[in-house]
Design a binder for these strands. Structure first.
Lengths: 337, 337
DNA sequence: TTGTAGGCGTTATCAA
DNA sequence: TTGATAACGCCTACAA
């Protein structure tokens, strides 16, 4: 059995109260006593039991995040960066990060959230890749459980969130392509239930309107936010009798898949075909040619979300609870440089 | 305050004992009683408090993994796959996965492990990217704390591990290149403290010996397991008066960076220069051209490690505690197809 | 400045 | 088959 506060107290001929207070830095402990306590606690390798402390304090100092995917080939670097941000910032608050994986809108997903909330395993939750009608937001709101959101649901949101204005971003991207002389601009999106699809698709349409380009339904493909999805959708688009001269992917991964489809048809991206993505992850720097994209600050947003969540958990008011950021257009060779 | 076992008991006019036992599926509870308990518990949204249960049971049903990196640009897909495997398998055992980030051999790293172990926040730990002389393995052994390892330390290991025989793999890779007619084969490695560097470098040397190629120190570069590191190292190698005709990277990321350096010098990879990597992550499929690599089963290994760890935690003997797997050579266009 | 004691919500032992 | 009760290890109001 590990060393407990009793062991430390016995060793020092003190009460457990004094040991506890000395270690917590209360100022009604003689400084000499505190020094003695601290030193022997360290010597004995004592740290308070998290289980006991959690029970007593009614909080766990843990935040939770469920990766919205499951299975071998989840490799969106978005999540790597996002998790790195969550982890780093949690540590700096002396919080820990609990991770699980679950495919969106499955019974497993419900189970994970239920477990975390009802057993109070975590103090708060980070939500991302929101759905238009997101049961998670409703569920957590109903249970008055602290959470913050990356993105947004369809309904009016009364929770703290950070949203990237991807609609404006996609309009900007279309504008950029139009300025490069493109008129047949295609779009490969994601399943409709995701808010990001609604927003980015709307931005695409906005961009076409602004340039007086008639909307052409045959130029809209559907992917699944993976390379494979982008690859398949681009194959169809490039096989059209009048193929597009430019294709925008809903994210960088989709765009990377699209580029592979182009290569396989002998099409040179950046010359014969313009390609663009969204996210600005490392992937976009290392495609061949490098990918024009909209950069969202994934890592910093994750850190920010953790700050917001912990503020929320501690019951303090969080000033600008709803933040909207603009993505940054990064022009690279995939759209002609 | 959330609903507790007392609330459920009161509602049913039963003792908390009976409720507890009914929910845990003990067979000394009348089946009709159990049904009633289960139904109202569900109706009331009751799940046992994790803090209380952990305290009582003296375990947390949580395993921990520290990502050996910190800061914005940690994007090695190895970790994405690894974490996905850990998370998926943990869930299937009703365990949760606690994640932290820390740069190897820093005070922060020590702090994280100390916290987890001494406060018994987690029941066991997964270690990866081992160092030759790894304080973590020593520390956990000393504390008799359950852990399993991906890879290995230098010393004789008396802990459960899964090792990929990357030494044999790299020898195989050199053989492949020799068969393609290469004699000037370079290697871009990682910092010496990592076991993987010792093994892969040794495999590289093995391969040269086997082909009777004299070792040339100027053909050995040092990276840091990132694209940037591979890029820099390859720049130097390609600037040699007699540059190599083939370069092996210590991992896929390094190789991808090397390919960029080649492109910038107008060198066509797969024709003018052979390039190979290690890991077999998704990156290797999507480089241009696709990358010859050694595939290690990252996802499955992660799942396997979780199984081993949980077996270990539960005190059961684990049959083949020390597993060594062979990586699989995947030949693609980057070495001529 | 230090000590006593109650209780956080469970599970497990033992008695009924 | 069910119930009373004692821990698990800590924090904190209150007493000394």
């Amino acid at each position: 059995m590990a060393v407990t506060i009793r062991d430390v107290a016995k060793q020092l001929n003190l009460s457990i109260t004094t040991v506890s207070r000395a270690l917590d830095g209360y100022d009604d402990v003689a400084s000499e006593t505190r020094a003695r306590v601290r030193s022997t606690a360290r010597k004995m390798g004592y740290l308070p039991s998290r289980a006991a402390r959690n029970l007593r304090r009614q909080r766990a100092d843990i935040i939770g995040y469920v990766i919205p995917a499951s299975g071998t080939r989840f490799t969106d670097p978005f999540f790597s960066e996002f998790i790195a941000g969550l982890g780093d910032q949690a540590v700096s608050h002396n919080f820990d990060l609990l991770i699980s994986t679950a495919t969106p809108d499955t019974p497993e997903e419900k189970k994970v959230y239920a477990r975390w909330v009802q057993s109070r395993l975590v103090d708060g939750i980070i939500l991302s890749r929101m759905r238009l009608n997101d049961w998670r937001a409703n569920h957590l709101t109903k249970h008055k459980f602290p959470f913050v959101v990356h993105g947004r649901t369809q309904s009016k949101a009364d929770y703290p969130f950070i949203e990237i204005d991807s609609r404006a971003g996609f309009a900007l991207l279309v504008k950029h392509l139009v300025e490069r002389g493109h008129r047949r601009i295609a779009y490969v999106g994601a399943p409709e239930k995701f808010t990001l699809q609604r927003d980015r698709y709307a931005g695409y349409c906005d961009g076409l309107s602004a340039a007086n380009i008639p909307f052409d339904k045959s130029l809209v493909g559907v992917g699944d936010l993976t390379r494979a999805g982008g690859y398949r959708a681009a194959q169809s688009l490039l096989a059209l009798r009048k193929p597009p001269t430019a294709i925008i992917g809903v994210n960088d991964l989709t765009a990377d898949g699209m580029m592979r489809a182009a290569r396989e048809r002998g099409i040179v991206v950046g010359r014969d075909l313009a390609v663009a993505g969204y996210d600005g992850t490392e992937v976009s720097e290392h495609t061949q040619p490098p990918l024009t994209t909209l950069r969202q600050p994934v890592y910093d947003t994750a850190r920010n979300l953790v700050n917001m969540l912990i503020t929320h958990i501690q019951g303090e008011p969080l000033a600008p609870a709803q933040i909207i950021l603009q993505p940054e257009l990064i022009i690279r060779e995939s759209t002609g440089g």
